[in-house]
Design a protein around this nucleic acid. Sequence first.
DNA 1: CTGAAAGCGCTTACAG
DNA 2: CTGAAAGCGCTTACAG
Lengths: 334, 334
Amino acid sequence: MADQGALGVRIEDVARAVGVSRATATRALRGQGRIAASTRERVQRAAEQLGYVPNLMATELASGARGGAIGLMLRDAANPVYGQLFSALEVAAAAAGLELVTVTIGADPGGERQVLALRRLLGMRVAGLLVATGGVDSARLEPFAAEVPMVRVGRPEASPRIHAESYDEEWHGRLLAERVVALGHRDVVLLGASAETSYGEHRRGDDLERALAGVAVRRLRTGPDPADGVPAALDAVAAGASAVLCTSDVRQLAVLRGLAARGLSASTTGWDGRMPGIDLLGLTTVRMPVEEAATGAVDRLAALLGGEELTLPTHRGWRGELVVGRTLTERGTA
Amino acid sequence: MADQGALGVRIEDVARAVGVSRATATRALRGQGRIAASTRERVQRAAEQLGYVPNLMATELASGARGGAIGLMLRDAANPVYGQLFSALEVAAAAAGLELVTVTIGADPGGERQVLALRRLLGMRVAGLLVATGGVDSARLEPFAAEVPMVRVGRPEASPRIHAESYDEEWHGRLLAERVVALGHRDVVLLGASAETSYGEHRRGDDLERALAGVAVRRLRTGPDPADGVPAALDAVAAGASAVLCTSDVRQLAVLRGLAARGLSASTTGWDGRMPGIDLLGLTTVRMPVEEAATGAVDRLAALLGGEELTLPTHRGWRGELVVGRTLTERGTA
DNA sequence: CTGAAAGCGCTTACAG
DNA sequence: CTGAAAGCGCTTACAG
């Protein structure tokens, strides 16, 4: 163990150094209550000199304050979309004067780790909860929502009893489908993660498929690796499909690589629209309204913390925009 | 305030429901010490039924346990590199059996917010600290390092008194410079953030410039927006510079857009190498060894926590690899 | 303006 | 195997 250093310094030590009581030291350090300016200064100086760091655990326990912090449960930040959501949430929280304590969850098929993480956050007595993962079903979330204000953000799918600020993926699916159909595609591949792999992507696939009226859809449900299912998709292209619709942009990239490698051509679309070089790559995708959802979620949580308890849970779906690049062309012109 | 719900349930309530003492309830719930199986079961059942969630603050305060968690201070996760570093750290921490509590810092010119965040993390009595931001100078970090094991990760620049697992940016600079020179470029633009904007990028610029022996370098120091300085860089290209070397990939993208818009051509290079579509874009860049640094940092921290106190702080620099794409060609062939 | 005392919710020796 | 008591480090009325 490294030298315990200043962490061993308690307020008692500071108080003793100055010759006052703990209560006085507390007042001096928190700047609350009546206190002589000179005393305050002496205490502050001593605290600084001793390297006093208040023990938050004790502070919050004693004050009963539910710590200003709000807990954020996030999924894998390696994905640009989650990284940006994370960042946007931070910005929004800072603007709202809230501190964020974050825990992330990697793969979590059964949702077990998420429940654990939620308990842990709750154990830290966060004032509110932001849930930005897709893998927990609402049923497991509800008990937590009963204990502390909770807002789900990003993914759709939310029980009517839980606040949610999400992306209107159904709308996004229609946006894409409309354009694909308008360009004459009637035989397409729909490539995306299976429900177990990513519930969010799975839902996107459903939304898109539903909107593709009159189109022959070969749906491929794959694993987490973006390259999964690409060979099968290419086979379908070779067999006549004119477009490969993906439920995420990284998958679209994998398809583009595959097409180039096999010398095939087909239209492609993705989903997310948050990668840096989208314009240069000419990707066709839907851009998720990340900032809007993040700000919406934080504002709603702030309102709930502020006492808006009577509000019925609401589910707000934010709409992004279609980005049409070179990868989507009229059927037959690719 | 939302219904306080089960958060109001204390261990006392559980104990009373079963008719045992708090001490017994504790033992039953933690599974420590001798306890009758039947008692344990009854307590567990009651806890579940009442929705008991242990107050972590009280638990850790009472047990003196410095909570297993380690604190991570991170910079803006919107940047793909940081998002991936975050993710890699999570993975490594999970593998090492450590929990991560993360706070992020946005722009923080003076390093004030970072110091605050560090104090806050320390207040939570984390067992160790991972610092993955660039903006704090070592002098401000040292006091914290004296209190709790600390490892700096990612950015170079570290006092000899602080453990660091970083990227060997000097080496990366040489890697790039060598290739640029080998391809005949003798008049280049070096485009990157000013020291105030991003210390890391600034250092990269220094490293690169130093390695560009015999090359005329026009250095442009810009603000945070990737598009900053691009017009000036293009002017330099129009005036004869054959390459634009950037200290980050997003800047390189901005330059590529600018070149296309103005119908100019020049070689370009970037830095980071972590964007999803690099290969498709044909970017030239250095790929940061994110996973290696992350694993190294977590392992080292784990070792420190495990009692390796005698180790002198070490500074390990991880080396990534050069990625040469279409954007870097022999001078005159662009 | 300042101090003594009680208490936050939990755990941990110490006795039984 | 179980309970009473003391204590973790801090704060907050309540008296002075």
